[in-house]
Amino acid sequence: MAHDEHNPLTHPEVRSASSAMYIAAFVLGIVAMGIACLVTVGFDLSQSDTLTWITVLAVIAGLGQLFLLFKLDLSKTMIWHTVSLVLTVPLFFMAVGLTIWMFHYLALRTMVGG
């Protein structure tokens, strides 16, 4: 095939690989999840405090992974990756959040469900 004369290893998505960032993502993920686990089982926090802490840690770990592993940015190579993620995330949280919200009220008012 004609196009294989082109060296695919020069592609920016190949070039973007970096051991330092992968190791950083790994450490961040493990440490964040480790602390979150400790917060949950090791400390005697109130439920809402625990939830806040583990949520913050999950956001840190998740965002860290997204940026360190996927190298999302506004460069020409990655712009559409970034845009599509930014458009999807609100839908993700809307689906989860609004559902929990409506079922919370439903449970209060009808005593149906957990």
Binding site: M102, F103, Y105, L108
Partner: peptide
């Protein structure tokens, strides 16, 4: 279109 789906079950009881 993503934030309106509950109008299909207004009568569910969520108030």
């Amino acid at each position: 279109s993503w934030a309106v789906w509950l109008h299909h079950f207004f009568i569910m009881g969520q108030g």
